[in-house]
């Protein structure tokens, strides 16, 4: 049976205008997320992960601008382009259909409101009946790995990791169908991180929640994601199942990322990837990874590679294939 994607991003490009320069943060990205999928987006800082995710919610604001593309969402009333939604519909869409845990959300909580009131506000505003709110607050806090005693706390009374978990609870407050987690567990120790992520996996199983998981921690992604997108300089350069990507990485950048996973062995250096990503305000001729790529050859400088299926739904954008 042909399955229709829950969210379909078509040829999206986003620019930021800063200091008279135009930064091409996202260039011509296509992406599909099916119901119940766990899709990961990995890549270096500045590669455009957060910007891409924000288009899913039509949240790009000045100095940002969506140049072209569509974000089609399949809701109860059929397919709609999120980028053309009326403001009232968008408000509903944002917490109830798709919600997002923002990077650095740790400091986005309202400092003068108790945690329970922040959760309550969001729930009431999106149609939860008053009598059900209390039970729901407890449920969401537990899901996020917090004890219900934090309800009465103000944000400054919580540790960094606890605040991050409050944001996870907030994002789940209205039972969204798709959850976008942008570096949502980066401030948490591995034990708590694993507790929370397995709970999210369970939600996926029980309620067909779909998840977009954005992270720079590629080793984490192996344990949870089904499909992995590797982003570089505003483009998806490789897309494959977790098994394919870890077993047979094709793009030289993906290879470099996998080689930079730190290990516990004493003495092994923490390796970065040599060089820096290209300046996105300049026109890039050829492959954006060329000046850092150990396998670069003449064609790479002259011609920009396209993302293509090299078999078995393994996509890569590199002239070697």
């Amino acid at each position: 049976m042909m399955s229709f994607p829950l969210l379909e991003v078509k040829d999206i490009s986003v620019e930021y205008g800063v200091d008279g320069k135009t930064i091409k943060a996202v260039s011509h990205v296509n992406l599909e997320i099916n119901k119940g999928d766990i899709v990961a987006i990995v890549g270096e800082s500045g590669s455009g992960k957060s910007t891409l995710a924000m288009t899913f919610l039509n949240l790009i604001e000045k100095p940002g601008r969506i140049r072209n593309g569509k974000v089609n969402y399949r809701g109860a009333k059929g397919v709609v382009d999120v980028l053309r939604m009326r403001p009232v519909d968008l408000m509903r869409y944002r917490w109830k259909e798709v919600s997002m845990i923002f990077q650095s959300a740790m400091n986005s909580l309202n400092p003068v409101m108790r945690i329970e009131d922040q959760l309550k506000d969001v729930m009431i505003e999106h149609g939860t009946v008053e009598s059900a709110v209390d039970a729901k607050i407890d449920e969401k806090l537990k899901l996020a790995g917090l004890t219900t005693s934090v309800k009465k706390s103000y944000p400054h009374e919580l540790s960094g990791g606890m605040k991050q978990r409050v944001n996870i609870a907030l994002a789940l407050a209205c039972d969204p169908k798709l959850l976008i987690a942008d570096e949502a567990t980066t401030a948490l120790d591995v034990v708590v991180q694993r507790q929370i992520l397995t709970r999210l996996l369970k939600l996926k199983q029980d309620l067909s929640l779909s998840l977009v998981f954005i992270t720079h921690d590629i080793s984490l992604v192996a344990n949870i994601a089904e499909i992995i997108n590797v982003m570089y300089a505003g483009k998806i350069v490789e897309r494959a199942s977790a098994k394919q990507l870890f077993g047979n990485p094709l793009h030289p950048y993906t290879e470099a990322l996998l080689n930079s996973i730190p290990t516990l062995e004493k003495g092994t250096a923490i390796k970065g990837i040599k060089g820096t990503p290209p300046d996105l305000s300049k026109e890039i001729k050829g492959c954006p990874f060329a000046d850092r790529c150990p396998k670069m050859y003449d064609r790479c400088l002259a011609e920009s590679p396209e993302l293509k299926n090299v078999g078995d739904n393994h996509y890569v954008s590199c002239h070697l294939y």
């Binding site: 344990n223 949870i224 977790a242 870890f246 996998l258």
Partner: peptide, 14 residues
């Protein structure tokens, strides 16, 4: 023991 091992064959168990 909880440090994630980058092995897609060891998916976390719900």
């Amino acid at each position: 023991d909880s440090i994630p091992v980058p092995d897609p064959n060891k998916k976390w168990n719900t």
